[in-house]
Simulated scan of single mutants.
Amino acid sequence: MSLHVASRRRTTLHRDFPDALILDVTSRAPEPWVRLSPFYPHGGIPVPGHPDRTAQSVEGVWQALKVFASEEEDFSKLEVTTMKGIKRTVRRLGPPLGHRLEGRLLGYEEARRLIYLPTYRWMLDHRAPDLVAELRELSTKHTVVLLDYTTNGDVADLSTPLSHAALIAQRVRDL
């Protein structure tokens, strides 16, 4: 199996991965690969700690449960279907205090582990299993490069955002 993750901004992709199948998996990707973006509105995604709620997207869950000094959770983010206007930014709201889960404010790494990872994995397993299986098949025949804006696959590395492409690659390898 030959599966790699690279930055969408990398200018040497074709030189570094000659003859590779290069697939963008961001919110700007073409169909069907855009369906692997955390912003994609699959619908019916369970919200951790809220058995009565579902979300349109993984990013909607992440943003909805984020807490700022000036603003608590924003459950309206669960309903966003446009892949735009989901983010709740530091520029507008100041630094986040964390993510609230079952009444507890979680730090960034713990929130990644208890909210983001299980939600994204659920989406891969229940909303995009066909694409995960196709990537597995493709990566046995070709070198496949998944493009994302970041390449950080280490949940504990808080210096840069977590790469969902790295999570896809791990899920494909785990099958």
Rank of each mutant, 00 (worst) to 15 (best):
128 A>H: 04
45 I>G: 10
94 G>N: 00
81 T>S: 14
77 K>T: 01
64 A>H: 06
101 L>R: 02
114 L>R: 15
14 H>D: 15
62 W>S: 10
120 Y>G: 15
56 Q>K: 10
82 T>L: 01
110 E>V: 10
100 R>N: 08
38 P>Y: 02
80 V>L: 01
106 L>Y: 04
45 I>F: 02
75 F>I: 02
83 M>P: 06
14 H>W: 06
27 S>I: 01
7 S>A: 12
103 G>H: 04
109 E>T: 11
73 E>V: 15
3 L>Y: 13
152 N>T: 05
170 Q>T: 05
37 S>G: 08
135 L>E: 01
24 D>M: 07
81 T>F: 01
133 A>L: 09
56 Q>T: 14
124 L>P: 04
29 A>S: 13
80 V>W: 00
9 R>S: 15
66 K>S: 03
30 P>Q: 13
28 R>N: 14
140 T>G: 08
94 G>F: 03
163 S>T: 07
69 A>D: 15
125 D>H: 12
111 A>N: 02
144 V>I: 12
112 R>E: 00
109 E>D: 14
32 P>L: 07
142 H>F: 06
164 H>W: 00
126 H>G: 09
77 K>C: 15
54 T>H: 12
113 R>K: 10
147 L>R: 07
141 K>T: 15
66 K>H: 06
134 E>C: 09
145 V>I: 03
4 H>Y: 11
104 R>D: 01
27 S>Q: 14
29 A>C: 08
41 P>L: 00
30 P>C: 00
27 S>G: 12
100 R>W: 06
70 S>T: 15
153 G>Q: 06
116 Y>L: 14
63 Q>V: 04
43 G>W: 05
175 L>K: 04
80 V>I: 09
65 L>P: 12
27 S>Y: 06
166 A>I: 02
42 H>D: 10
139 S>L: 02
68 F>K: 08
54 T>L: 11
31 E>F: 05
149 Y>S: 14
86 I>A: 05
73 E>G: 03
8 R>H: 10
57 S>F: 05
69 A>V: 07
52 D>G: 13
39 F>W: 13
36 L>C: 10
98 G>A: 09
147 L>E: 11
67 V>G: 05
171 R>H: 08
132 V>M: 08
126 H>L: 10
100 R>G: 05
56 Q>H: 09
74 D>V: 12
31 E>Y: 01
68 F>I: 07
101 L>C: 11
91 R>W: 03
2 S>G: 03
41 P>H: 04
84 K>P: 04
5 V>L: 11
49 G>I: 03
47 V>P: 10
105 L>F: 06
150 T>E: 15
58 V>W: 05
166 A>Y: 02
59 E>C: 06
144 V>A: 00
2 S>W: 07
71 E>L: 13
140 T>C: 05
156 A>M: 08
60 G>V: 09
57 S>G: 05
62 W>P: 00
